[in-house]
Design a protein around this nucleic acid. Structure first.
Lengths: 234, 234
DNA sequence: CGATCAATTGACTTAGCTCAAAGCATGTGG
DNA sequence: CCACATGCTTTGAGCTAAGTCAATTGATCG
């Protein structure tokens, strides 16, 4: 819970507001593979204090594990809106510590502190912008570009690396990667092999990857030297 | 300008706030094909009082006219964020009446009226949710499903029709449609032909379309009986 | 150490892209 | 008012990237 207080936008919001927000949130631990119990009655805001998770749609015919909307990691604040046709699911990719807020009450409180509300709004407008940029790219990009883009995003997110070389572990499976990019696991695997043969990526075991040249990957992904608006935090 | 006042969320926001918001906005008319002059200095919120427009990225190699992020129509409020790598462009598809606000000042004023701010936030969270749902679909959908989905969206947006039959005129070209769905004009055309042969769509001239069974199209698009979260306003 | 499930690799199929040509609207000038 | 020119749209014929099906390899955990 303390971690959440630190995550509030710096310089905005007073201590009182933070206290009141903490009062309505509850902490929750999810073990790897566990899922945040859906609540069809209300929208929720979830803060990920620690760990990694995927936001996925209910499984459908052509995506048995449920299509992946986004990946989220420690420090992210995400909104889990209830859907008319069934909730989206927040599934832990690794052990997770969460703080869950009812969206209505959270906003009621934030409303008394416009600075907080505005900063939440600014965040969500940015997120919308990123989501759109991403969507646009999705429609026009090849499998290799998508994988390259994915790796660059993960490097930023997981290793805080936007340039040069870096190594980190991917918490999600190939299936999750494929489901998030609109590709099959086979294609994901093949593209990784190609990138490996091109000397851009090394892999070890199922999850460890090592990117030798993030800039080259970014170029491959078709990113126009944009360091802003690249991560996929909510 | 009066039209904008009506567009403020009903029941929220007082008259004073509306007055102050109107004071910082300026009206603008765009003729068909014209473009909102970009302003790299600040983000803007644009209200479309009348007409239709596309939000497109700067032209790149593989999309000469610029990739289309979204279509917008009368009544929409959209945010045009400046980009690190060049602005997105708002281009009129038909003659348009706009009201343009500097985002910062708009939010400064809205901040004094938390109800307005919150409603703008709620809108943008919804928009984010829709954008993500859409993005997810984009990755996994066939050309025919995308076209069907597009037609259903347009029926809702342009003819206020979510079921049964309806007819309307598409203000955008096949190229714009393709650019927004990640398809080529040829594929757009071919899929329309298939839908025509299936008896779901009739076309007349370049722009007029007649959908005989919106529900069937929605089913074809893979929409799970979701009437909520379907339009693509902001 | 072995069972099990994830990941890789291969062979084949197919949806959608590219290149190319022909048809139509729409608008303009005679 | 009609003819024509222009540019959108449609249609056709390959081609290629990615999906499908199937078999193998490899990793992880009890």
């Amino acid at each position: 819970m303390e971690a959440f207080r630190d995550a509030l936008p710096p310089g905005t919001g007073d201590a009182l507001t933070a206290d009141r927000l903490c009062a309505i949130g509850f902490c929750l631990h999810l073990a790897k593979g566990e899922e945040l119990a859906p609540d069809p009655r209300e929208d929720r805001l979830v803060y990920i204090a620690e760990g990694s998770a995927k936001l996925a749609a209910q499984p459908v015919a052509d995506a048995p594990s449920g299509q992946v909307l986004a990946f989220h990691f420690g420090g992210d604040m995400i909104s889990v809106l209830r859907q008319s046709d069934g909730d989206f699911r927040l599934v832990a990719l690794s052990d997770c510590d969460l703080v869950v807020f009812p969206a209505d009450r959270f906003l009621d409180i934030a409303q008394s502190d416009p600075a907080v509300l505005r900063s939440v709004l600014a965040r969500s407008l940015q997120a919308l912008h990123r989501s759109r940029t991403r969507m646009m790219q999705m429609g026009h990009k090849s499998a290799q570009q998508r994988i390259a883009d994915f790796l660059v995003s993960m490097a930023e997110r997981l290793a805080n690396c936007t340039s040069g070389a870096c190594a980190f572990a991917l918490p999600m499976s190939r299936r999750d990667i494929g489901d998030s990019l609109g590709l099959t696991i086979e294609t994901v695997s093949r593209q990784l092999t190609e990138l490996r043969e091109a000397g851009l990526v090394e892999t070890e075991g199922r999850s460890k990857v090592c990117l030798s040249d993030v800039d080259a990957l970014a170029r491959l992904a078709g990113r126009q030297h944009s360091q802003a608006g690249a991560t996929s935090k909510n």
